[in-house]
Computed example of a mutant assay.
Amino acid sequence: MNRSVELVKIQQSSPVQDLSPRPELRALTGLRGLAATAVAVAHFQNAIPAYSGTPFMWHNAVDLFFCLSGFTLSYVYNRETFQFSSYLTARVARIYPLYLVCLIAAGALYVWPNVVNPISYPVRTAVSDFALQLAMLNAWPVIGSGVHWDSPAWSLSVEWFCYVLLFPILLFQKASPSTSTRVLCIAVSTVASFFLFTFFYDDLLVTPQLHAPKSHWSDWVALARGVLGFIAGWAAFASFQKRDGLYLACTRFSTLIWCGVALIVLLAYCRLTNPHALIVVYPFVVLAATDPNSITSRLLGSKPLHFLGVISYSIYMTHFVVFLAAVDLFGTSATWPLAVYVMLAAATAAVSVGTYFAIEMPARKAIRGIRRSAL
């Protein structure tokens, strides 16, 4: 998502070389929590026959993650103290342990018992896809296959590309001193991402099966979304850092920006606009949330939403695995009563809290401890 990309406390997520960690932007943490919840709700909602395809931030909430990641990494790291090895260790510690657990769980619950067969998904293809997913290369065009056993994990492969190759380049690039140029960068990035998704996205590419994409451009959509989202977040951070006119406008009119988000969602539900149009607004939403004094930022930074943001990665990674477990227990979702969906939401919340404290946090400490002992 992060699916990936981080907005837990800066003290927890900063690498060793950051001598003066910047204060946490609590509203951005809450914003990440809302995005993760939106993805989970969209997946659950899409499983209900009467609501399948209803655009509850369907797909585009992940683009908010990319934008947040570009902004947040630019906020946390600085070129003077940047050390690639420490940075990469922090990224691996942040995303890989839970990613690996969910990959294995999705394979055991769904792929191997239900999907692997000689015609539509041969064993040889499944083994190759598993190896690619272990290396988080599955969303990389030419190298990867595009298949993802834990459906939301496609964004983690994209995030990994941005972590390793894109962000170190952006970090050492000086943003344009012109506010208009930064606005143009954000506009071009988001509009290009919208265009590629609208015309070339093929959702069957991510499913475990043999499938020919509808266009040769379809293989590049996932990676392009991540790269363009990161760039938009990086440009938004440049405005935040310089406190330019774009930053002042976004923080001053934050309530109006959120009204715009609500309007787009409403129009999308009425089939009057493409719900993916939200990605054009996301960089401005992120900038608006950096003002701690606005009503929306205080709400996003409140304890409940902040904690939701802290466990957002667990929500994002585990909700599909919980859904697969429910399918194993109760059969196809088309026959589920409302009580099963209520239980599904409660189970996702419980599992997310559990995996955050039992897997995410101990794994981060262990990996960073290994690095410190090796230095």
Rank of each mutant, 00 (worst) to 15 (best):
V8E: 09
P21Q: 07
P23Q: 11
T29C: 12
V41N: 02
P49H: 10
V62W: 07
Y77N: 03
S86K: 10
T89H: 01
Y96P: 06
L103A: 07
A106D: 10
N117F: 03
V123G: 01
M136E: 01
W149Q: 06
D150M: 02
D150L: 02
S151D: 09
S157W: 11
F172Q: 14
S176Y: 11
C185F: 07
A192S: 15
S193T: 10
F197I: 08
F199V: 03
K214V: 13
D219P: 00
G233A: 08
A235I: 13
K242F: 00
C250Q: 08
S254P: 05
W258T: 01
V261L: 15
R271P: 00
A277R: 01
I279D: 00
A289N: 06
D291C: 14
R298K: 15
L300P: 06
P304F: 06
Y313M: 05
Y313S: 05
S314M: 04
I315H: 12
H319L: 10
V321I: 11
V327A: 01
F330V: 02
G331R: 09
S333N: 03
T335V: 01
T335C: 02
L338H: 05
A339L: 13
Y341E: 02
A349N: 01
A350Y: 03
S352N: 06
P362Q: 11
K365L: 11
